[in-house]
Amino acid sequence: MFATASTQPANVSEEVALSCRSLVKHYGEVVAVDGIHLEVRMGECFGLLGPNGAGKTTTVEIFEGLTIPDGGRVEVLGQGWGEGNDRALRERLAVQLQETQFADRLTVVETIAMFRSLYKRGWEPDEVIRLVELEEKRDARVGKLSGGQKQRLAIACALAAAPDVLFLDEPTTGLDPQAKLQLWDLIETFRSRGGTILLTTHYMEEASRLCDRVAIMDHGKVIALDTPNALVESLGADEIVEFSLEGFVADDRLSRLPGVRGVRSRDGNYLLTVSSVAEALPALLAEVEIHQARLVGLTTHTATLEDVFVTLTGRKLRDA
């Protein structure tokens, strides 16, 4: 139906679509968002990557005008919320929320038609249904859809508004790999046609595949922000060696091994960032031997955004 879009950021412009400065939001004692600055350009797919509770949803919902921040300045398409023009602004945005459940007893086409009717302009429901490949489910009750189909319906409802900016909050969480791929295609198509996207995720594959730029969030703060490639390159390493030990080897001994750029360890689990596995591995084995420790498991892979997060926080995205 449509070709997989190319991933080069061909049409990112200089114009700013979304921006915030010193954004702060508290929930009682919890600081959900802790003074972040972001700038998303027109035509860009911008990702917020972080573990659960990092403050991604809160940030996105502030941009969506659903949550009022405690401090900071937010601009959406050159406008702030509550400046008397909110409805006109909403005409140009569309939103998919993390936890929406649509009415089970309406059909797919009825649900989309209802959302479509709320906007002055947009696409006919049937066009959007084709785009998200739900033709066969057009007249099926929403309650009977699978998780992936429901998620595509959520995006269809958003796309029916023909938005300039699309907000997606963990669009693929809980989906099986195939459903995930389908959604990624959809998002890439929207972006390749000039749409602007602000997306949250805790899947690093998703962020590196879809996003032109990624902000890594943790505890309400942005701890790194760049293109996925630049973030990975910032590790100064191409490969990662992970292993566990029975026994003990000091971190600084490991960091002096040839080819090793950095060491992270926690409870006998080690993560080495290395420029060359071929160089580092024999030296590592010898070092373990010297300390009379025993290797329990060892894996190597090329560096990813996940490794960037682990290097910055010492925790993994999933269990942070």
Binding site: M1, N11, E15, W123, E127, R130, L159, T189, G194
Partner: peptide, 14 residues
């Protein structure tokens, strides 16, 4: 029908 989404000129702010 590849051109449903974003089949429009680049949105300009004005």
């Amino acid at each position: 029908m590849p051109d449903v989404i974003g089949a429009k000129p680049r949105p300009s702010l004005e």
